[in-house]
Amino acid sequence: MSATDDAHDDGDSDRDLGTLYVVGIGPGLPGDMTQRAKDVIRNADCVIASNLYQEFLRRDGTLPPEDAVADGDERTDGSRSSSDPRSDGGTVASAFQGGRDQEIIRSTMGRQIELAREAFERVRNGEDVAHVSGGDPNVYGKSDLLFVMAREDGAEDVPIEIVPGVTAALGGAANLGAPLSNDFCTISLSDKWRGWAEIEEKLRAAAISGFVIVLYNCWRNYERAVEIVREERSDDVRVAIFNDACRGDAGRNGEDQTITTLGEAVEHDDQVAGMGTSLLIGTHETEVWENDYERFLVTPRGGRDVDDF
């Protein structure tokens, strides 16, 4: 069975295989997920997702409701579900959706290697697997892990497809107005795999080069990052701090945003609420624009005027 009408079908040798889809669900709320992502998840034989992402996906029926019925009972809409604990601490939930069985596996940070290997085996057995990533899988998401694991395990026989999603930089920028209309870059402040010396080098290069900078993982060393950028940019440059972009009150901390300046950014440490926090650091061209409803940030593309259009 295929997760979508245009699923992988390159020849007889592939027809017994499924496909491993790494699916970006954007902020996670139904209105900000692509139709492609919804279709793949709804039609997959197996969905691997964290508890938070499962909650998001149930809001519009992309996944069946968790507590609609007792284990194994049939729902009025023709779907049914059951849950079983796993010996490794995870949970497998079985659902009956769209006339077929679907398994939903809880993903946790400490089980990514095991889950990748399980996904490979399921695909080899003919299943379509949707491995859910928040935001976009290629922006500090899960896509690289799956490719690294495939190389490590010799899983070149497993078809892999990446389904893009809206990342926090884009969701936050949309809420803020037009701060990314000129060149920009993203930098993660997590030093789990990269040393701080490398992060500092990237920060300094981005600041000197005139990029609008979006910082991810600001719960680690964000004050340090701001001080480095201040060495290359004026303190009056506009900065936005935003949490849980496009998630409303469904995120870990609740969606909010604050517009400040580079010189005052570290004074808003109470707004830095964890992994869902990002900082957008503007350039000397980034300005505040206000209408009768709210304040926006705008970075004009090359400083164009109306006549330039």
Rank of each mutant, 00 (worst) to 15 (best):
Q97Y: 14
R233P: 04
Q112I: 10
V123D: 02
A150N: 04
L280P: 11
R100I: 07
D307I: 01
T62W: 02
G18T: 00
L203Y: 08
L17T: 03
R58E: 10
L29V: 15
R194K: 14
E223L: 03
E290T: 13
I160T: 03
A240F: 11
D101I: 07
D10H: 06
L180G: 07
T34Q: 00
N291R: 00
I187K: 01
R42H: 04
L17H: 11
A207T: 09
T286Y: 01
R220L: 15
L145D: 11
L180F: 01
E231P: 06
P164S: 07
D39H: 06
S133E: 04
E255V: 03
D39N: 08
H284Q: 10
S234N: 11
R59Y: 10
R122Q: 11
S2W: 10
R36C: 03
L145F: 14
I213N: 03
D101A: 15
L262M: 06
D144M: 12
G210V: 04
M149P: 00
E255K: 07
A93M: 09
H131Q: 05
W196I: 04
A7P: 02
A245K: 03
Y222K: 00
D39S: 14
V288F: 04
T186F: 08
I259N: 03
G248T: 10
D73Q: 15
L262C: 06
E103N: 13
N125I: 01
Q257D: 15
G177W: 04
D77F: 13
K202G: 00
H268I: 01
R111N: 09
A245L: 05
A70Y: 08
D6C: 11
E267Y: 04
G177K: 01
I199F: 07
N43H: 12
F296C: 05
T299P: 05
V69F: 12
E232W: 00
D10T: 02
E121H: 06
E294Q: 15
Y222G: 01
L146T: 02
S87G: 02
R75W: 11
E232V: 03
G28L: 00
I160K: 12
G98R: 15
N253K: 06
E294D: 11
S81K: 10
E294W: 08
Q35S: 10
I48L: 14
R301A: 10
G251W: 13
G24W: 02
G99N: 13
A93L: 02
D16E: 07
I199K: 01
E114G: 00
S79N: 05
V266M: 09
E114C: 01
E74V: 11
E74M: 12
R106L: 15
V214E: 04
R220Q: 15
I48G: 00
R238L: 05
I113K: 15
L63N: 01
Q271W: 05
T260V: 06
A95P: 04
T167S: 15
R111T: 08
F309C: 01
V229E: 04
